[in-house]
Write a protein that binds this DNA or RNA. Structure first.
Length: 275
DNA sequence: ACGGATGTTCGCGC
DNA sequence: CGCGCGAACATCCG
């Protein structure tokens, strides 16, 4: 599930696999889902490139080949992943882009559903990247800024959290996990959050992301196998809440599943301290 | 067998 | 501009 933590761990992998190594040739039989760079252009631009660095912005991965070459912007979508193939290793299904390195090694972008992207950077990509909101793991995320942004949105807080123009990198799973940690009901209107709730939420977001990062770093097998880490609430409808034991609930928000604990995450908190 | 759900983003309407 | 919905795609599950 490619949200910020998985994308960050993928970035670390790509850094180890690619930085300082030359791409001898590239094959992109099926790199584009809905527009993007043409196959010829991609292959021509990547052949001979030396990878200088791999960055992450929100859920986007950026390959840097130095000032003389166009970089790559990649997005995992829902099913995208990067794999490393040794000499003679058979190609996996749904291989979209393959980068040949020395010693017969290859790094491949695999994406069954083709909702991911692997494109050369251009003006349009720059605009998309520039439109991304703040990095939730950086100092940019403060209680004050979160409260200020939330106070201007009438959407449910969970939908708000997943808006990449506000915070970059949070998806359906991490939104559910963070709201559980902060004890906030996912359907609460964003602008109704009190200052201390926003502060708790800012801490919860960092905590949920770090927890997930740790889980992927410890067991990177989860990445390649597409397995799930164990979540606090996501995907656990009917199972007991890890905090209070009540059965967790599921409902639809914007067409996507939301999970929460009806006891820990009240729509009308009774602890506001004002009544 | 078939309908519904699955982590994503984008573009189109209001 | 804010917001909600459906599309893009392929697979899996009951």
């Amino acid at each position: 599930m490619p949200e910020l933590p998985e994308v960050e761990v993928t970035r670390e992998l790509l850094e180890r696999w690619l930085v300082g190594r030359r791409i001898l040739s590239a094959l992109a039989p099926d790199a584009r889902a809905r527009g993007g760079t043409s196959r010829r252009e991609l292959e021509a631009a990547l052949a001979g490139a030396m990878t200088r660095g791999v960055e992450r912005r929100g859920k986007f991965l950026l390959l840097d080949f130095g000032p003389k070459r166009r970089g790559v912007v990649a997005h995992l979508g829902m099913t995208g992943k990067f794999v490393r193939l040794g000499r003679g290793e058979p190609e996996p299904r749904f291989l979209r882009v393959s980068l040949a390195l020395s010693r017969g090694e290859r790094v491949g972008f695999v994406d069954a559903r083709r909702l991911g992207q692997f494109r050369l950077r251009d003006a349009r990509e720059e605009r998309r990247l520039a439109a991304l909101g703040l990095e939730p793991l950086s100092r940019e995320l403060t209680a004050g800024r979160l409260h200020q942004m939330a106070s201007r949105s009438r959407r449910p807080i969970k939908i708000f959290l997943m808006d990449q123009k506000r915070l970059a990198g949070i998806g359906n799973i991490q939104a559910a996990e963070a709201l559980f940690l902060a004890r906030i009901h996912p359907a609460r209107e964003a602008s109704s959050l009190r200052r201390e709730e926003a502060a708790a939420l800012a801490r919860a977001i960092r905590s949920a992301l770090r927890r997930e990062l740790r889980s992927y770093r410890e067991r990177p097998v989860l990445l390649s196998e597409g397995g799930d880490a164990d979540f606090l609430v996501y995907g656990r409808a009917g199972e007991p809440c890890r905090r209070c034991g009540s059965p967790l609930s599921r409902f639809l928000q914007g067409g996507r599943s939301s999970y929460y604990c009806p006891r820990c995450q009240r729509k009308c908190p009774t602890w506001t301290g004002r009544s």
